[in-house]
Design a protein around this nucleic acid. Sequence first.
DNA 1: GGGGAAGTTGAGGGTGCCCTCAAGTAGGTA
DNA 2: TACCTACTTGAGGGCACCCTCAACTTCCCC
Lengths: 207, 207
Amino acid sequence: MAKPLRKDAQRNRDLLVAAARELFAERGLDVPLEEIARCAGVSIGTLYNRFPGRADLIDAVFADRVAATRVLAEEALDMPDAWDGLVRFLTGVCEMQAADLGYNALASERGPYAAASEEAVAEGYALMRRIVARAQESGTLRPDVTLEDMVFVVWGHARTVEATAAIAPRLWRRHLALLLDGLRTPEPSPLPEPPLSPEQARRAMSP
Amino acid sequence: MAKPLRKDAQRNRDLLVAAARELFAERGLDVPLEEIARCAGVSIGTLYNRFPGRADLIDAVFADRVAATRVLAEEALDMPDAWDGLVRFLTGVCEMQAADLGYNALASERGPYAAASEEAVAEGYALMRRIVARAQESGTLRPDVTLEDMVFVVWGHARTVEATAAIAPRLWRRHLALLLDGLRTPEPSPLPEPPLSPEQARRAMSP
DNA sequence: GGGGAAGTTGAGGGTGCCCTCAAGTAGGTA
DNA sequence: TACCTACTTGAGGGCACCCTCAACTTCCCC
């Protein structure tokens, strides 16, 4: 546990996180740090005192979203119908993506920020793996897709979510429905290539 | 028709386009112009003489790909089976995306370069609309998707193509198959939102 | 082959962002 | 109140890229 900050320092920290949360949500993860500082009414030097790099600020801003994603996954696992659980989880993730450009980027962009709190990500993956497995065991999710497939599918979908968020904020529901129809069991065609291993997927997403 | 370039100028122009083609393919559309000039063995000033801005260079580099896409679409329309034609077209586009990061970005990124030769894009859309309509008339493509849906689907898919091109260059075939299963008619679930109008789609893709 | 138009060059100014650090300020403890 | 430490400040150096322009070189036509 780190020693507590001085009162003014803590206040500034909170202001910074709040400003960053707002700007990240509106404009993505690439907002200039100087703008965040200005928007928080604090100097750029203070920002660097509190957060050595952009990634630390991102960690602080999105800690609650990571937690929310976890809760979402647990709720999905608690739903009586496995397919409903899967749909619920994907819908929830897309909702957050549509509401927050920063979250979208974090959940979908390959790049330097994916590192945010390694073990939280690992936990999230473990939960998602259970959601997928459960849906497959129930016979509703086609048996030949893997978690890695799902991640890429969502990843691609994120771009649509982002592009249409401003113009038709609910359109992603349409595309998600389209996508889910491809994941259902009824008459899947054989898939032409083997899936990615978890390790390969990891490498593909953080170059 | 513009007046012909002097011999050396034409040679330099060709060198620049060749260098740009290579660098765009390897590293995307954001390569520094100075690097392109250096790689062509020409000064940055010459590059600016020949191409006032990055977009002009992009136009020159990808003119043939735009033409190739058009040919692909026409071939698809000539295939006896409408569904095969659709698959053929989508596969061809993904192949080009996987082989060339620049083409991928051009076909998928929203941003300042989408403008490349307006009327060529319009023609391409018209052809794609026919491919979609034909597949729907044949009863194989679900009737409730529109061209605009397809564009976004491909658009999202492009991100997967790009991410996995280096690690598993054929993986996109797997994801395309998944996607096509969602587009087939058999048991489509009702889509929850109305599609985008062409105008809305245009706005969504070039902010 | 000579003159002028066409083309080339690359240093340099502009911009936007990153990050640092020496000097100044304000909390908190005695 | 006084002092020490934690904290803040913002000008400024660094970097990467964009783009320009005055001086120089090359081509091409007469």
